[in-house]
Nucleic acid binder design. Structure first.
Lengths: 265, 265
DNA sequence: GACTATAGCGTACGCTGTACGGAGTTCAAG
DNA sequence: CTTGAACTCCGTACAGCGTACGCTATAGTC
């Protein structure tokens, strides 16, 4: 039951953590841990149990130390979340041989629409893998290396189309904003299943009698009609990815109209 | 520092709370409070201090009772948040004389595009007024009267265009998803100002030396270019509403292409 | 007037993040 | 080789959280 705010820590210390201090002091006993191990353990816990399950004691347990030991490496929980945030935005590509694990498709390949699509899907997948990302309220931008790299990739996708820099930034914001909003539906249904152990249909069926007692079809005519139609249509389990893909195409259509219009001038 | 999940409580009890039980038992001492007063106090606190500042003890203080007294009216904090969620989605219109405070414009007026625009702006404004809405993770849909009414209004805006019910639902999801995503930027900058007491430019200026030490323009070529351009362009304080309006128009353009295409068949 | 359902609250438990101070370990300087 | 400083790790403690439990006072019913 916890939302975390990004960027609540000391900016200087956060930047050192995010970018890695070059030299570590040599005095004293050898550190048992590293910031990286702590961050990975924390991400694992958050992936499995959500942000609510993430506590300093829990992370420490995982690593075989006490909670207070973590404070040697990390100023506090807020900064830890900042680093977690940047870490999950690293691309698998950067760790190995240059292939990017996307079937050999490089960022620059294809037209701008294909590039934006690929980035949107990539982002969507990341949210699905790390649902706690939705709970991290970015009260301040986290300027880590991976997040900056992501921003750069996104801007590159719409570069060279004759747009101004401000327009490029606006388009990128549009895509990332949409993905963030759309992924909520997908994560919501997934979490409902995990939390309640029921499928979407089962859940609706258990709610139906409660809703029927209070729901007045005359007060919500259109909702009643659409709800009924949805109940018949979605015989197969509701697929939130379908909603995401539909909206993505509509949004790209809108962007396409804009780009064509600007190029024509 | 707290995220709340919606729908974590007992469904039956939550529904009773949301829709109001018709008869209250008459035995025992007269209740000092009502659910409504508790919810309003809680909303006030969350508006002013964020979800992090919202605690049962804090709400109780506000109302001159102890924390445990609240549990006579509300099963727990999760259900309280559910009711808060539904409550802020009530329209001012329903409380008074039938005018809706939007300059006499009724929901049905105008074309579908105008209707969707109006609903999107309305939603945007609500998020700005109640930023904690962004922190409430809807792990389960809250089926309160006001949220259902909102859904009905949104569906009505795209009704009668020759779309299937499923398509209508997809379009509505697209708009609400976008608004949710887009409003994050706006709330983010507003909260940064409130939390740090700095304007956006001041904040960036204080961060610049830190960033300059680690930022390699060759590694992030496009981001460097756009960042520089943004720094020059946005002499006036960065206006997130501009980003929202830009994206809204692009999205509506995309929807328009879809609607025209479907109508043509 | 007796009975009983209810409102309100005092206390307590387990959880959270983390401030503080001390113990043990390792390196650099004398 | 000894000493002192720097460093890691941890035990304890505190304030705050949601809320379970049980008691008391109140108000309506019989």
């Amino acid at each position: 039951m916890t939302t975390e705010y990004s960027g609540s820590g000391d900016p200087k210390r956060s930047m050192e953590l995010l970018w890695g201090v070059p030299d570590r002091p040599r005095r004293g006993p050898k550190p048992k841990l590293t910031v990286d191990r702590i961050v990975r353990a924390a991400i694992g816990i958050a992936d499995a149990e959500g942000l609510a399950g993430l506590s300093m004691r829990r992370v420490a347990d995982e690593l075989g130390v006490t909670a207070m030991s973590l404070y040697t490496y990390v100023p506090g929980k807020a900064e830890l979340v900042d680093v977690m945030l940047d870490t999950v935005h690293a691309r698998p590509a950067e760790a190995d041989d240059g292939h990017d694990g996307h079937g050999g498709v490089a960022d620059g390949d294809g037209d701008w629409r294909g590039r934006l699509e690929r980035l949107a899907r990539e982002s969507y997948e990341r949210y699905r893998r790390h649902p706690w990302l939705l709970q991290v309220a970015t009260s301040v931008p986290v300027l880590g290396p991976n997040l900056l790299a992501k921003y750069d990739r996104e801007l590159s996708a719409v570069d060279g189309l004759g747009l101004t820099e401000v327009e490029m930034d606006l388009l990128v914001s549009l895509v990332t904003d949409y993905v963030h909003g759309a992924v909520r539906g997908a994560v919501e249904t997934a979490q409902m299943q995990r939390r309640t152990g029921m499928s979407t249909e089962q859940w609706w069926q258990s709610y139906e009698p409660l809703l029927a007692q209070v729901f007045d079809p005359e007060r919500y005519p259109v909702a009643a009609r659409v709800g009924a139609a949805a109940g018949e249509e979605y015989q197969a389990p509701y697929d939130p990815t379908r909603s995401f893909e539909f909206g993505l195409q509509r949004m790209l259509d809108g962007i396409e109209a804009f780009v064509r219009n600007r190029a024509g001038r």
